[in-house]
Amino acid sequence: MTKTFLVVYAKVPGKNFAGQAPDVPGCVSAGDTLEEMRVMMREGLESHFQVMTEYGERLPEPATTSVDFKDDDFEDVEYFVVEHLQVEMPVQHHKGEAISA
């Protein structure tokens, strides 16, 4: 099963992209290019969800539909890319083990 999460990528001048999903606090990633950032963010989210499932934690639901930026958000950022990213969600096995759907 897949779910679609809103993700935000920030391009730091002269450096790489940093990414995060507002509905998944603590899960961040980085990549040299936007395409690499997408791959790394998807892998980061899927790994994060896998570990949460293994520890019996409830998985977050995608709820954020937009992002409001303030002027100070751009202080150290060249630009942002906001998009929806489809992520493979683990399912709970009857013995508590996570398996990919």
Rank of each mutant, 00 (worst) to 15 (best):
F49D: 04
L6C: 11
D23N: 07
E57V: 07
Q92P: 07
P25N: 05
M1K: 11
Y9P: 03
K15E: 09
M1W: 08
A18N: 10
M52F: 06
F49G: 06
S66D: 15
T64K: 04
A63G: 12
S100N: 06
K95V: 03
P90Y: 08
E61V: 06
E78Y: 11
V8K: 07
Q86S: 15
V81W: 08
A98G: 02
T65Y: 08
Q20N: 11
P62E: 00
L6I: 04
K3S: 14
E35I: 04
V91I: 14
S66P: 00
Q50P: 00
K70L: 09
T65M: 10
V39K: 13
A10C: 09
L34S: 13
D76R: 06
V81I: 13
E83T: 13
M1P: 07
D71E: 12
M89S: 01
E83K: 02
E61A: 10
A63R: 09
F69A: 03
P13S: 09
R42E: 12
V77L: 00
L59D: 08
G44R: 00
F69H: 01
L85W: 04
A18G: 07
D73P: 01
Q86T: 15
G19M: 04
F80D: 04
T2D: 13
E78F: 07
S100Y: 09
